[in-house]
Each structure stands twice: as C-alpha cells, then as structure tokens.
Amino acid sequence: MRIAIRHRLSVTPPAGTANAVLQLLLTPQGGPTQNVESWSVEMAGIGNAGRFIDAYGNVAHLVNQSRPEGELVVTVKGVIETTDRHGVLGRVGGEPVPALYRRVTPLTKAPVTLYGKFRNAKESRLDVLHALMARVGETLGTSETPAQMQADGGQSQSQGEAGKALPPASDYAHSFVGAARALDIPARYVTGYLMGAEDGVSAFHTWAEAFDEGLGWIGFDARLQMCPTDRHVRLAAGLDGLSTQPLRVVPAGDGARDIEVSVAAA
C-alpha cells in the first residue's frame, strides 16, 4: 500500500531563550514492512542540522536556533510503501541487542495484574504475547468494552461502551511493554502513523514490539487489538514514549503540539 503523510508540529521555547536545540525523531527508515519512496523535513535551520543514528537505531536530527522568537514549526511529508507481514518485523541489521529492551523505565512499570497469570505459562512465547495483548485490552478497555482503568494523566481519545473514556494509545503501548519486560521478554515502544484511524485514535499512533527468538521483532497494537498491518507506518522505537518523542526542545517550553496530521492512500 502507498501511503502519503503530512505532519506539522510546533514547539515554543521559553521567552528570552538565547539558544535552543531541537531534536527531531521524524524520519522513517526502510525495512521489511516499508519502503520510503520520498520524505522531507522542513523547518528553519534544517539545512545545517546534524543528522545521526541514535542509540536505538532511529534517524535523528539536531537543529540549533539562535534567539528563537515565538513558535517554531516543523513540517514532514512523504510517501511510504507498506507491506503487511502480520506484524513480523524480524531481525533488522544494525539495531541494538534485544537485551537492551528488558530495562524497566518509570513509564513502563506494569502492575502484576497484567502479567502475573503468564509467569508460568506453558504456551509458546508468541501465544503468550498475543494473550498479553488481549489482557491489556481487557484491563484498559477497547472500543467494544468499557475502560476499567485510566493511566495517570492520560487524556482520553475515544469512548468505550456506555460512554466510558478510553486512555490514549500510548498507555496501551506502555502497559504492553512493561508487562512483557516483567516476563523477561524484550519489548520496545514504537511511534508511527496509522492510516484510516477510527474511534478517536490519532493518525500519529503508538504501539509496541516484542522479541521472539524464532521470528525476531513482532509488533502488537494493543489499542486496536491487532498486530500492525500495512496501515501502519513505523517511525521510531525506544524504551518508552520519552525516548521516542518526535520533537523536543532544550530548554523545554510547553512541549510540542500537533498542528496537522494527514495520513491517506497515495
């Protein structure tokens, strides 16, 4: 599937800032599930930006802004050709060792009620991971079932049965990642885009990937209760939502905000 993406974000450094540094994780890479036909990043100073591969294998840009005044706008756009591999990314060369993703972070501390029943499971790892995805859905709620809990500070994006508010996709990804790590399974947080997002789910989307010795990395979208398909465009991966922020600035202001996210068939 060919998917056209346009994403505009903005961030406002604190007033009186002498020099600001922006880090962008807004450049997708090709791989088993996608081919980047075209992609551009536009903002003031991008021509002199430093480009590098970060510790998690993501393409990152560092952009300096001298005496920035007001809102800084970043626009990314391009066309990605995707392939449905039923969520299987496999083993990608040049990536960090999977063991890195056993590390628990403050955002990925999962309650034992999510993973306790799987501690002594006799099933295969793949079966356990699918059951874990279902368990996260049962706990946080899906579009068909009411939410049973809200993550701290989570802003609801959609409504479940009987008008119950559901947490954002990031809460599902963090819960799945944390529960998998509690079972000693390497798991990572993934950002990207979702074509045809429904039920209030943002087109800028998040999900998780877990490692299986036989199949390699496999994606699990607990918010949608499915493995990623050719509707998903993978952008960046890391330990959690903090390490995969698409746009951050130092010194920090009020945080980045989306102006426009358009994801459609090309």
Rank of each mutant, 00 (worst) to 15 (best):
L166F: 02
Y193L: 04
G78R: 05
T108N: 10
D127Q: 14
G192S: 06
P13D: 06
D254Y: 03
R119Q: 15
T244D: 02
C227E: 10
G255Y: 10
H7C: 08
R135Q: 15
L107R: 15
Y115D: 03
V73D: 04
V73C: 03
E95C: 03
G93Y: 07
G200C: 05
G241S: 12
A20V: 04
A179I: 02
G30F: 02
H61W: 12
L100D: 11
N120E: 13
E209D: 15
L107Y: 12
H86Q: 14
R125W: 08
A222R: 01
N48G: 09
V92M: 10
R125M: 12
V73N: 06
G255W: 04
Y189G: 00
V190N: 00
R223Y: 08
T145H: 11
S170N: 10
S40A: 13
Q155N: 12
H174C: 10
V112G: 03
P111L: 08
R85L: 15
F52D: 09
S158W: 04
C227S: 12
R223T: 02
T83H: 13
G253K: 01
A187F: 01
G154N: 09
G241H: 09
G255Q: 09
S158V: 01
P28S: 04
Q159I: 11
V104R: 15
T244C: 12
N120S: 12
G219A: 05
W39H: 07
N19V: 11
R257A: 14
G141Y: 03
L25Q: 05
I80H: 03
G238A: 02
A147C: 13
V59R: 05
W207P: 00
G47E: 13
L140N: 02
Y56D: 12
P246L: 03
G78N: 07
A179V: 06
D54I: 04
E144I: 07
L62Q: 14
P246V: 04
D199I: 00
